[in-house]
């Protein structure tokens, strides 16, 4: 009987401690993040109540945005499209520009990482162009293309170049000499070393560069669209502000934020899928 009691006590302790862990998990994944958002909403609400003329309260903003939220893909004539369409237009520009950027930046990163003369030739160029706001390229792009859409894509392309080049070069140049020695002992030709050893070894770095590039590209597209106009979430922000419709701007801020988060998450998933596994530190 005492054994039974002991077992029951242990079971109760185990149950209690499991309940405690579950409680902590709920707290860490649901309660605390929700509290953060609640704080921001309360701050917004407070400011809006103190200065009624300044901005709508969250509740008013939600009500006036209901049409946008419930019908994201409406088409009510040329130029009058739901935010879903605007978002897709912006995403299209970002993905085309980012994709072209990656296609150019990854090989350049390999050249810079593998060849010292290339590094010496290209590093100053990269260091000078990297701190330039991508928006400064917009007038040049407009002069070249004479059209808003290709110019926006070009700016995103330029934006995507630098972090990807720098991180790829870093990854390529820091491939462990041990791996290279294995390839050399196996008499692997240089081009096959690039494909079978250097590329897989530097994939984590390449993806870091791509994630940074995509993040900045998503930041930049909003500003670019404000300047170029046309269809897109960035122009939506500017357009609604011109109509003094601040509620929709708040909506756009949330949409842009959530989309950026999803883009980064998708990039992370792509990395896990391509590299098959989490990056290891050995």
């Amino acid at each position: 009987m005492p054994m039974m009691n002991l077992a029951a006590v242990f079971a109760a302790i185990a149950q209690a401690s499991w309940n405690r862990t579950k409680l902590f998990m709920v707290r860490d994944t649901v309660v605390l993040p929700a509290l953060g958002f609640l704080g921001i909403l309360l701050l917004w609400w407070g400011v809006a109540l103190l200065r009624r003329d300044l901005m709508p309260t969250p509740w008013e903003a939600l009500l006036s945005n209901l049409d946008f939220i419930l019908h994201p893909f409406y088409q009510r004539g040329p130029g009058d499209l739901g935010v879903g369409w605007l978002l897709l237009a912006s995403l299209r520009r970002v993905l085309i520009g980012f994709g072209l950027g990656a296609i150019v930046a990854i090989p350049i990163g390999f050249l810079v990482g593998m060849s010292r003369p290339m590094m010496l030739a290209l590093n100053p160029v990269i260091q000078i162009f990297k701190p330039v706001s991508p928006l400064a390229w917009l007038p040049i792009a407009l002069a070249i293309f004479n059209l808003a859409d290709p110019s926006a894509i070009f700016v995103i392309f330029v934006t995507s170049l630098w972090p990807t080049i720098i991180n790829t070069a870093l990854g390529v140049s820091s491939v462990s000499q041990d791996y290279i020695d294995v390839a050399r002992v196996l008499e692997m030709p240089k081009w096959r070393q690039v494909i079978k050893i250097i590329l897989p070894a530097s994939l984590p770095y390449i993806f870091t560069g791509l994630r940074i590039s995509l993040g900045i590209a998503w930041l930049v597209i909003v500003a670019v669209e404000m300047l170029t106009g046309g269809i897109g979430i960035g122009f939506f922000v500017w357009d609604e502000w011109s109509r003094l419709n601040l509620s929709s701007v708040f909506l756009a801020v949330f949409i842009i934020g959530i989309t950026g988060l999803l883009l980064d998450f998708a990039m992370g998933q792509l990395q896990a899928w391509v590299t098959h596994r989490r990056p290891v530190n050995s």
């Binding site: 041990d178 791996y179 020695d181 294995v182 002992v185 050893i197 590299t275 098959h276 290891v280 050995s282």
Partner: peptide, 11 residues
Amino acid sequence: MVFQHYSLLPW
């Protein structure tokens, strides 16, 4: 060669 730190390709 057999390397001291194995030199296996982790991927």
